[in-house]
């Protein structure tokens, strides 16, 4: 165990992370080179120990790629990631393996995240063996709310929620400090979603975990995130403390996403912002503000088409960042 970090210093920090997928060049590299797919295009954030950053965006926004490059499951094109002060991308394979114990991931699809040919017990014993840990399968299962008898079962005998609990237990088996939760509840029934979210929250407080919580809608993140970052086309377009972003969203994209969150009160009247068109291809991002072709902001101008808005602090609250030229104007 390393010494506790001084307060205020983040546990995880991502600086200008970029991941471009080179397009196929055809036969022997002949033919016209095509532009790379800009899955992640300069993302920066920091997560304090024990807190949760909610990373929200629609499919294709690059949020999953952020999580996977941070754990070096995919190599980043450029940028840096610091974990407990050490540069993750600079580690050799031995130190990387040691780091694997500290950073873990929970996947979205509970059906493909467990090896169908291994029992739950075998799945959970594997990481213990790799890192020579003395943990017990039964206590891991109990911790995620499963009967220890599940150790003998195969994944296909379990429900989606039970599988997801096994996936969480597997991530916890190596006693990590930081867990990337990659849409851990999107594939589950609504009734099970709440249970799994509560489990993740319980585990966070019990084990003092730090989460990067990836989701495609703001409603799920609301209950678990301390800070929320919204991604669009590989960029963070807005980042703010959770209470802040739900009360006063600044970026028109965030406002559109929030207006899509179902309202439990049927009498509440709320203007729904419906975005036109689809998310553009990350191989051909629009010039200027990436959101401008779909932006419903009344102040939208020529400037949006030509000038990329930087992610900047929007007054009056400090710590509220948005990448919009007209973030201050109401919509």
């Amino acid at each position: 165990m390393s010494a506790p970090r001084p307060a205020g210093q983040p546990l995880v920090e991502v600086r200008d992370l970029v991941k471009h997928y080179a397009a196929e060049r055809g036969w022997f590299g002949l033919g016209r080179p095509r532009p790379p797919v800009r899955a992640v295009d300069g993302v920066s954030f920091a997560i304090g120990g024990g807190s949760t950053l909610g990373l929200v965006g629609e499919s294709g926004s690059g949020k999953t790629t952020v999580g996977r490059t941070m754990l070096r499951l995919q190599e980043a094109t450029s940028g840096r990631v610091f974990f407990e002060g050490s540069d993750v991308f600079a580690l050799d394979s031995g130190r990387l393996r040691a780091l694997r114990r500290r950073m873990q991931i929970v996947f979205q699809d509970p059906y493909s995240s467990l090896n169908p040919r291994m029992t739950v017990g075998e799945t959970l014993r594997e990481p213990l063996k790799i890192h020579h840990l003395s943990g017990e399968v039964s206590s891991l299962l109990e911790e995620v709310g499963l009967d220890p008898a599940f150790a003998k079962r195969y994944p296909h005998e379990l429900s989606g929620g039970q599988r997801q609990r096994v996936g969480i237990a597997r991530a916890l088996s190596v006693e990590p400090r930081f867990v990337v939760c990659d849409e851990p509840v999107s594939a589950l029934d609504v009734s099970v979603q709440a249970q799994v979210l509560n489990l993740l929250a319980d585990l966070q407080s019990r084990r003092r975990l730090t989460y990067l919580f990836i989701a495609h809608d703001l409603a799920v993140v609301r209950h678990i995130a301390d800070t929320v970052a919204v991604m669009y086309l590989g960029k963070i377009v807005e980042r703010a403390p959770a209470a802040e972003i739900y009360a006063l969203p600044r970026h028109p994209y965030t406002r559109a996403l929030l207006s899509a969150v179902p309202e439990p009160d049927p009498r509440a009247t709320k203007r729904r912002i419906v975005l036109s068109g689809d998310i553009p291809s990350p191989a051909h991002p629009p010039p200027g503000c990436p959101f401008h072709p779909r932006c419903p902001h009344p102040k939208k101008s020529e400037r949006c088409r030509t000038e990329v808005p930087p992610l900047r602090e929007v007054p009056p609250q400090s710590g509220h960042l948005a990448a919009c030229h007209y973030a201050e104007q109401p919509m």
Binding site: R68, Q104, I105, F107, Q108, S112, E126, I130, R170
Partner: peptide, 16 residues
Amino acid sequence: RDYVLAARALGAGAGG
């Protein structure tokens, strides 16, 4: 598949 990524994330070597 995610379970292969999970194994890599847990530190399993290529052979494993």
